[in-house]
Each structure stands twice: as structure tokens, then as C-alpha cells.
């Protein structure tokens, strides 16, 4: 029992492959999440300020992406861009690069698209809970709007948004597993390959599950610390 385990995981190198896959998963998740968050800030501000046309467009985007399975969004981006990317790559002579890097770019883009839609809602909610009085006080001190936003609204909103961002992150890291369906070499894909070759799906999917579990557990702890840090001075402490 232990000998077969040892030979599968260490001698055949599947353990290392899975760990590398896990690293890729973390990278896709982080990059996708950060792109999504950065893109979400202007969209959330547009919804918060109710800018006429933009606000409705953002609304439609966020409702559609949040109402539709992540898998479908990934299919749309992946199948919808194959042709187009190929043409662009041929024109510019980057064919090889396009073929190798293509799944990762689309994968990250898909993760960013999904996480952005959820981040918009979180941020808008947080922006709306910033007390009006503080903004009026800033205005009466003749602070320029940009300074008022960067020094007063944003820090307060970020504190309130942290819990929601935590949820979005938990969801994003789990959504990265969906990218494996279109052939990206991350943890889930590695586990599937290993399961196929060694014919022991139970073992490898369970290892993948425990790696995912470790990721969410660690990030949960980190977010807990961050929340305690940003709540300094707010709850009697």
C-alpha cells in the first residue's frame, strides 16, 4: 500500500507535478483576482455615481456574468477568441508564442471577467455605506474631489469591502479549477492527467482536493489577520 503510494507520488514524480500545478493555480487566481479588482474600481464608481449609460452597461455585465455558470463564460471567451487570436498572431508573426501562451491568457482573462463582476457588487455596496457626512465635511474643507476620494472614501470603503473581497477570492480560487476544462495546465488538469495515466483517480483527485483545501484555509487565515488589522480603532480596541 505505502510502497505503491511512494512510487506513484515520489518516484514517478506526480507529487511534484501536482505541486507545480498548484503553483500555477495560485498564480492564475492571484493575477485574475487583481486584474478583476482593478477593473472593478472604475465600474463600481460608475454604478455608485449613477453615470447614465455606463452604469446600465455595467449592470447588464454584472447581472449576466453572475447569473450564468462560470463554465459558460469560459467557453464563450475560449471558443469566441480562437479564430481571432490566430489571425492576429499570424499577422504579427507570433504564432508559436500565441499557441503556447494562449490558454493561460484566456484562462486568466476568464477568471478576471468572473471575479470582476462579483467585485463590482462588493465595492459598490461598500462605497454606498461610506457615511455621507464625511464626504460633506471633506467638501466643506475644500478638499479637491480626487483627494477626498483617495484619502477618505477609498480607505473607508476598502475596510468595509474586505469581507466581501474575501468571499470573492474564495470563489475565484475555486473557479480556477474550471479553466482546466479548456486545457490549462493547473492543479485540476494535472490531477486529471495523473489519474488517467496511473489509473488511480481517487488518490489524485483527493490530493487535488486537499491542496485546494490548504489554499483556502491559508488564505482564510490571512484574511482574518488583515481584517483584524484594518479594524484597528473601530471596535473598542
Amino acid at each position: 500500500m505505502f510502497e505503491t503510494l511512494w512510487s506513484l507520488i515520489v518516484e514517478q514524480g506526480w507529487g511534484l507535478a501536482l505541486l507545480r500545478g498548484a503553483l500555477v493555480t495560485i498564480c492564475i487566481g492571484l493575477v485574475g483576482m487583481v486584474i478583476g479588482l482593478i477593473a472593478a474600481v472604475p465600474f463600481a464608481i460608475a454604478r455608485w455615481q449613477r453615470i447614465p449609460v455606463l452604469s446600465q452597461m455595467v449592470d447588464v455585465y454584472s447581472i449576466v456574468v453572475r447569473g450564468v455558470p462560470g463554465l459558460l463564460v469560459i467557453y464563450l471567451l475560449f471558443f469566441g477568441s480562437v479564430d481571432w487570436v490566430q489571425k492576429v498572431a499570424v499577422v504579427f508573426g507570433y504564432r508559436d508564442i500565441a499557441e503556447t501562451a494562449y490558454p493561460s491568457i484566456i484562462g486568466i482573462l476568464a477568471i478576471a471577467t468572473i471575479s470582476c463582476a462579483y467585485s463590482i457588487e462588493v465595492m459598490r455596496g461598500a462605497l454606498e455605506t461610506v457615511p455621507k457626512g464625511l464626504l460633506e465635511a471633506a467638501k466643506s474643507l475644500a478638499l479637491p474631489p480626487s483627494v477626498a476620494f483617495l484619502r477618505i472614501t477609498l480607505p473607508l470603503a476598502l475596510r468595509l469591502a474586505l469581507g466581501g473581497i474575501n468571499n470573492v477570492w474564495q470563489m475565484t480560487i475555486k473557479d480556477t479549477s474550471l479553466v482546466s476544462i479548456v486545457g490549462m495546465q493547473e492543479l485540476m488538469r494535472m490531477a486529471a492527467i495523473a489519474a488517467g495515466i496511473t489509473r488511480s483517480p481517487l488518490l489524485f483527485y483527493c490530493i487535488a482536493a486537499s491542496l485546494f483545501f490548504a489554499m483556502t484555509a491559508v488564505s482564510q487565515t490571512l484574511f482574518g489577520l488583515a481584517e483584524r488589522h484594518t479594524n484597528r480603532g473601530f471596535s473598542g480596541g
Binding site: P201, A209, T216
Partner: peptide
């Protein structure tokens, strides 16, 4: 809650059949 649904579905469908 800490693992993706995809892993769960694969463990149930592909993994448990091995036992």
C-alpha cells in the same frame, strides 16, 4: 466549502468507482 465543486464531482464519479 473549501474545495471546488469540480473536484468533488470528479472524486464522486471517477474516484469512488475505484473502491
Amino acid at each position: 466549502r473549501g474545495t471546488p465543486m469540480l473536484v468533488q464531482i470528479f472524486v464522486i464519479y471517477y474516484g469512488l468507482g475505484q473502491v
